[in-house]
């Protein structure tokens, strides 16, 4: 195992942004963390990196986790320095981490930029969105990380580039023995792009397991509802299934299971007792047998 996070909690001004987050990353595999806005998926990753917001209190941060971790952000245009050439940004990271600057062209080749020697002279604005994200990934790889955290790496990209970048991350994981922590809001996008998946809701992990299992037979009612409401999963011409209500804010007190006010399967116990994560699902009445 490359990185284990156990019982991470992040509070800001007394409000729990992440209540209880655990995840295990393995070399060569992509682990997707999926959640809607406010689920705590990004803040959990930032806190592991030591980049939590000023004043936040982090409990159970893995010791010395920062070494060997690199991050790729959503918007490559703001992650790259606009006044530095691709070559300057890559060699800076390489030299800081004690690698020869000559590796820059190899790194670009690894992220699928074949004419690297020429591209080194380019500035970010001269590249397409997909190429910028490839350069941002190359910069992250320049530090030779064991773990690569990618936060919504395809949101700012065109639909036609989305799968290409996700596949690139998966290939890099396999070929470099890299553990990839992929953060996304789109449960459908992780289908072909990850080996394991963690589903978060309101600061908590509600379901965790092999992507193929979780997506084909979700056990938590939230995972099932999220999959069902996606336009991609529904034939046109009929109303889409929806989840009533909204995700509770960090300051909202919800007794028992935090999903119970929106749950179609809730019973009396759900309103009083918070379920624990057992066999990869945090629900008193999960669907189907344990995997």
């Amino acid at each position: 195992m490359t990185l284990a996070v156990q019982g991470l909690r992040v509070e800001l001004d007394g409000l729990p942004l992440v209540r209880d987050f655990s995840l295990q990353l393995t070399a060569g595999r992509v682990h997707a963390v999926v959640g809607e806005s406010g689920s705590g998926k990004t803040i959990a990753a930032l806190s592991v990196l030591g980049l939590e917001p000023h004043g936040a209190v982090v409990t159970n941060r893995p010791a010395a986790a920062r070494a060997g971790l690199s991050m790729v952000l959503q918007e490559p245009l703001s992650a790259l320095n606009p006044v530095l050439s691709v070559g300057a940004q890559l060699t800076e990271t390489l030299l800081v981490h004690g690698h020869p600057a000559s590796r820059a062209v190899e790194l670009l080749a690894e992220v699928g930029i074949s004419d690297g020697a020429e591209r080194l002279r380019f500035f970010p604005h001269q590249l397409s969105g997909g190429q910028r994200q490839r350069v941002a990934i190359a910069c992250a790889l320049a530090a030779s990380p064991k773990v690569l955290i990618a936060d919504e790496p395809t949101t700012a990209l065109d639909a036609s580039m989305r799968n290409v970048i996700l596949q690139l991350l998966r290939t890099l994981a396999r070929e470099r023995g890299l553990a990839v922590w992929l953060i996304t809001h789109d449960l459908h996008a992780v289908r072909g792009a990850s080996d394991e998946v963690t589903v978060m809701y309101a600061g908590l992990v509600v379901e965790q397991g092999a992507t193929a299992h979780v997506l084909s037979a979700p056990r938590h009612p939230y995972t099932a509802a999220l999959l069902a409401s996606n336009p991609a999963a529904n034939a046109p011409g009929r109303a889409l299934p929806t989840i009533d209500g909204a995700v509770p804010l960090a300051r909202e007190l919800v007794g028992g299971c935090r999903f119970h006010p929106r749950c179609s399967r809730r019973e009396a116990r759900c309103t009083t007792e918070a379920p624990r994560l057992v066999d990869g699902v945090a629900c008193h009445f999960p669907a189907g047998p344990p995997r």
Partner: peptide, 29 residues
Amino acid sequence: DVSVQAHVLNLLNALAASRALSFFVITHD
């Protein structure tokens, strides 16, 4: 968010039907 998208898409379809609205929809999705 995905769960909110479904609500808004349903709403737009209902409005188009009840008010005979025309839509010009621009999207990459």
